[in-house]
Structure formats: C-alpha cells, structure tokens
Nucleic acid binder design. Structure first.
Length: 424
RNA sequence: GGAGAGAUGGCCGAGCUGGCUGAAGGCGCUCGCCUGCUAAGCGAGUGAGGGGUGAAAGCUUCUCCGAGGGUUCGAAUCCCUCUCUCUCCGCCA
C-alpha cells in the first residue's frame, strides 16, 4: 500500500509511475472520496468535541445537584448525529482503502522502463554453460528413467501439476532444502524459522496477494484461510503490528515451506516436469531493514541467493525486471534465472525484491528511531534462496551423463550420505 | 468436544461499585548530575494514529485499553457477539 499522504500530494506523479507499469489507474475517484472524507471528519470531530465538553459539564452539575436534563436531551441529538455521520465516514474510508489496496507499488528510480518481460536487461551471466556430446534430455525424462520422479502416479493421487519424488529423488530434494538452509544460517546470518503453511486473509493482504490475486491462491473450504503461495507471507507477518527496536534491524529470516499456487491462467504452459507445479518446495529469505539501507540489503540478498547457484555450479543470469514486468508489491526486483540445457534457455529460479514500505505499511510494521519520537515504517525484502523444484530440475539437466545417470554436485554429496551419482 | 480464567502503553502490571485515567506503579529507553572505570544512585522526560493552525518550535482537537456491536449525556470500566491466549477434563498424532 502506498502512503495515503504521498498519493494525496502527488496524484499526477503516482498516475505517471503507474502508467509505466502498464496500469491505467484512475485516481479521480480517490481524490473525490478523499476530499469528502476530510469534510465529514471535520464535522464529526467538532460534534465530538462539543459532546466531550458538555458531558464534563453535566458531571459537574450532577455532582452539585443541579438539573442537567436539558443538556442531556441536547446531547442525545448530538450523539445521534455523530452516529449517522460516522456511518457515512466509514463507507467513505472503505472506498479509499479499497482503492489504495489495489494500487501497485511505485517502481524505484533504478528500475528500467519497459513494457514487458522482453525488455528486462541482463545484469550479469555467471558460470560455464555445459557442453554435451549427446542430445541433453529434459529433466522429466531423466527423472522418470532413473525412477526418481513419477508424475503419472502423482496425478493418480491428486491430479495434474503435482510431483512425486522417489528414492534418491526424494533424498536429493531434502538434501537441497538442508543445504540451502545451512548456508543461509551458517554463512549469511539468517535465522531459521518454520512457519505455518496456512495463513489468514489479513496476512495475505499484508504482503499483497489479496485482495487482487485471490484466484492464484488455494483457499480452504469453510475457512477464511489459504495455503501459502510462498514463505514470504507467513514470515513477513511475524512482525505484523509491531514496533521494532532500531538496534534490532536488520532482521534476517530464512524459511523452508512448500508453496501452493493455483497457476490460474497458465494452462498449456510448462505442462511437463517440475517447472510449474501446484505444489513445490522453496527456501525463502526475508529481511526487515532500515529504509536508509534497503537497497544495499537488496544487493546482499541477491548475493546470498547467487551463492547457492555458485556452490552448486549451475550457470545462471541475473535480470533487472523492467517497470512493465515488476510484481504488484515490488519497487525493484532482480530475477535469477538458471540455465536449462534441454530447452537452451534460462528459467527463473529466484526473485529478489525490495518492497520498501509497501508491505510494512499494510502489516503495520514500524521501528522507533533512538532519541526521536514517533515511528517509521520499516522496509521489507525477500527472495527465493532458492526454489527447490527448479533447482532439482536444473541439476538433473546440467549434470546428466550420456548413460542417463546424473552426477550429484559436490556440495550435496555429504547431504546424500556420500552418494556421488544417481544411476538407474 | 466439556468446564473455567484472561486479553490494558516498548515490556511487566494496576484500574473494571461508569465522569480531569491516555491510563497508577515498575522495568526499559533518552537527557542531565554524581562516582578512578563499571555497577549503583539522584533529577527530568518518555504511547500510537489522525485533523486544524503555524516557516518551524509549538498550540489545539479527535480517536485508540484484543476485534466488532449495544446501553448511556458520558465506557478501559456495564451488556452482547467474535477472535486469540492460558488452566482443568475428554479424545488423539
């Protein structure tokens, strides 16, 4: 959510910035409602003031045995009037809130202007793309041949777009989770948390999934609860409605959770393999920082995610999402894309974003500056570190051998009980 | 599922026979003093959000004691609903 005061004072600016995102937001309704709100508020406050003063007077009169029934009668009317105005104010404020909740974040000045994903500049490319003296296979074929992936059985259990890992595959998935958590906690200073995998509407609203993107979520029948689409949601809400100590910042958390996404509207896309599933595992990085340093923190967040790919020796590139491709809540996002040899393209494996105060304002996460009164909104950031399923796919494809076996990256071997290769 | 207790400021904790209580007291924090250093001690200050006015400091006003509703001239205090936490019983991973 944008700061209402900022929007009020920069209507044109906000409108222009949103246009760069390809959003044709009409702020006319906002202005109209906002002006009306102010007028009503003034009137209500006036009446309330009068009621407060007179009530005190009544108390004094009664104490002295003076009859106050005239004033009491008058205040009865004032009370009714306040109640009526309050109702109208409430409706008014609801409308304003709805408008604000549906406005996306404003892109940071360092975000390139562009219309869509074809205009995202490449920041860097890292690692050596493997050469094969045979035609590399897609990861689902490799996995099925090795007996470590079985989508057919998964669809029997549930339906399309669910994975079933078996044997060394299940173990490799678990190894990746443990490896990533270990690196982030031991080397990058994150605190490990294991949050609920089901969250309420308020938490979803705070991080920006609601109210606009409900169709992307799985909702529990009969409950106002949702399955988490990313650990970002539960972890960011750890500090909802809190005033943090300035000294406590920055706060780093890392969390493993499964992620559940409806993938509405992606029919026909990535129909095979692990790339687009309704359920996948992910290790997430979340930061709460002082506004002054949040862009430095974005760079280190990106670094922390990159380390994982480097250690796994997977080639990747980093792109800077342009204004037209930026997520709803984000002010700036780097995507890390891993090399998939069979398709010969880079695919997103991590998304590292600075939300500035957009989520923190919704979630009411503030901090207090030492020696200063008042509070300020913290900045929140998060990034995948990394998506496990896609990492699994990348390992299978990049480490595949001519005979159909797959080598296990060196850093994972100790997590696999010393296993160096997966053979049929 | 059954029975009970509770939810107050950054934290702990009074108030809950309705009326200068936005809230005692303590801790913490900030500033000052004091003391070889540290600790202790002394003094002062210290909730959040919004509106009006002002260049600003400030002044002024409204709201907020889990959430929502009700009673009343007036509610942290009374009534109703909901949520959450805790204790006991039952059941169960």
């Amino acid at each position: 959510m944008l700061d209402i005061k900022f929007v009020r004072q920069n209507v044109d600016k906000v409108q222009n910035m949103l246009a760069m995102r390809g959003e044709a937001a009409d702020l006319g309704t906002f202005e109209k409602n906002d002006n009306h709100r102010k007028a009503v508020l003034l009137e209500i406050e006036d009446l309330r003031h009068r009621r407060n003063v007179v009530s005190e007077q009544i108390a004094r009169m009664k104490k002295n045995g003076i009859d106050a029934s005239d004033l009491m009668a008058e205040m009865r009317d004032v009370g009714a009037k306040i109640k009526a105005l309050d109702k109208s104010l409430e409706k008014n404020e609801d409308q304003i809130k709805q408008i604000l909740l549906n406005l996306p974040n404003i892109p940071h000045s360092s975000v390139p202007v562009g219309k869509d994903s074809t205009e995202n500049p490449i920041v860097k490319q890292v690692g050596v793309i493997p050469e094969f003296d045979f035609d590399p296979l897609p990861h689902w074929t490799i996995g099925e041949n090795l007996g470590i992936l079985d989508f057919k059985t998964a669809s029997k259990i549930t339906g399309a777009r669910f994975p079933l890992y078996l044997g060394a595959g299940a173990k490799l998935e678990r190894a990746l989770i443990n490896f990533m958590l270990d690196i982030h906690t031991n080397q990058h200073g994150y605190q490990e948390v294991l949050p609920p995998f089901i969250v309420n509407e308020e938490s979803m609203t705070n991080t920006g999934q609601l109210p606009k993107f409900e169709e992307d979520l799985f909702k529990l029948a009969g409950w106002p609860y949702f399955l988490v689409p990313t650990a970002e949601v539960p972890v960011t809400n750890i500090h909802k409605n809190e005033i943090l100590d300035e000294d406590a910042l920055p706060i780093y958390y890392t969390a493993y959770t499964p992620c559940f996404r409806s993938e509405a509207g992606s029919y026909g896309k990535d129909t095979r393999g692990l790339i687009r599933q309704h359920q996948f595992n992910k290790v997430e990085l979340v930061k709460f920082t002082h506004p002054k340093i949040s862009y430095d923190e974005l760079e280190t967040l990106l670094h922390d995610a990159e380390v994982i790919l480097k250690m796994l020796e997977l080639p990747y590139q980093v792109i800077n999402l342009c204004t037209g491709d930026l997520g709803f809540s984000s002010a700036k996002t780097y995507d890390i894309e891993v090399w998939l040899p069979e398709q010969g393209i880079y695919r997103e494996i991590s998304s590292c974003s600075n939300f500035e105060g957009f989520q923190a304002r919704r979630a009411n996460i503030r901090f207090k500056r030492k020696g200063k009164k008042g509070t300020e909104i913290v900045h929140t950031l998060n990034g995948s570190g990394l998506a496990i399923g896609r990492t699994f796919a990348a390992i299978l494809e990049n480490y595949q051998q001519k005979d159909g076996s797959v080598l296990i990256p060196k850093v994972l071997q100790s997590y696999m009980g010393g296993m160096e290769i997966i053979t049929p």
